[in-house]
Amino acid sequence: MDNKDELSGKEVLFSDADKNGEPTEDTLSSCENASACKNKDKFKFSRPKRKDKPVLTPQQKKERFLRRAILSLKLFLCYLKIGLFTFGGGYAMIALLEREYVQKRKWISDAEFYEILAISESTPGPIAINSATFIGFKLIGVWGAFVAVVAVCIPSFSIILLISYFYDAFMAFIPVQYAFEGIKVGIAILITSAGVNMMKKAQKGAFEYFVFVPAFLLVTCFDIFNIDFSSVYLILIGICVGILYKLILDAINKRKSVVAVGLDTNASESESEKEEK
């Protein structure tokens, strides 16, 4: 009897150990580590799960609809204001956006705002449109993004449309023509200084100059000799060169770390980051 009990007890213990034992836990944790290591440089997917959505009563649905309608109206008016009062392009808009959304209304946090700026700078399109889409989406979803973008476009669109109807009559005035002779010079100065300022502010290494100088010379030559080569291709080439450079740098670093067996992988990674900078 005792023996049997002991045996059965052991059996129970064993089966328990099999179920919740160390081996399974170990594999799990190692898996987690591996996936974390792998995903370090990959995109993180952050899609909210549909299953967690609570079921709403009609009353709640109505309330939510109203809340969203009011919020989208506020968003619309706010972006209309921003579109109407920002002169001189996207960067002038950033200060206004921060004051309006981060400090006054507290719709988004400081960290989110800087994330939005970083994303706007690394995606194509006007910064105003990028940030409007992002903030609108964060607040009310796709509909919010649409509302914000339409609102930010309306002032400049209607103002320019109005001006373009009077453009020919306006340009027929002799004094205006003289004024525009002067403005030509002003615009030329403005564009050049904008480019030089962008370059001054950025961090520059050998790689940047190595790309900048040929690009500058090529664009200048194309224009002087009337060669039809779209700048679009130059930008695509720029993207390819950037990624290629990164891949080559990574390959070189990998070889180095293989040769230096004793080195910690983390150390070599931080080294490569330093070299990049």
Binding site: E121, S122, A188, I189, L190, I191, T192, S193, A194, G195, V196, M198, M199, A202, F207, E208, Y209, V211, F212, V213, P214, A215, F216, L218, V219, T220, D223, S231, L234, I235, I237, G238, I239, C240, V241, G242, I243, Y245, K246
Partner: peptide, 19 residues
């Protein structure tokens, strides 16, 4: 980041050359 690193100098070149 790498793609932006490649594009940014091209943008400088385009703007300064045009100006």
């Amino acid at each position: 980041k790498a793609a932006m690193k490649g594009v940014t100098p091209i943008i400088w070149g385009l703007i300064i050359s045009t100006g």
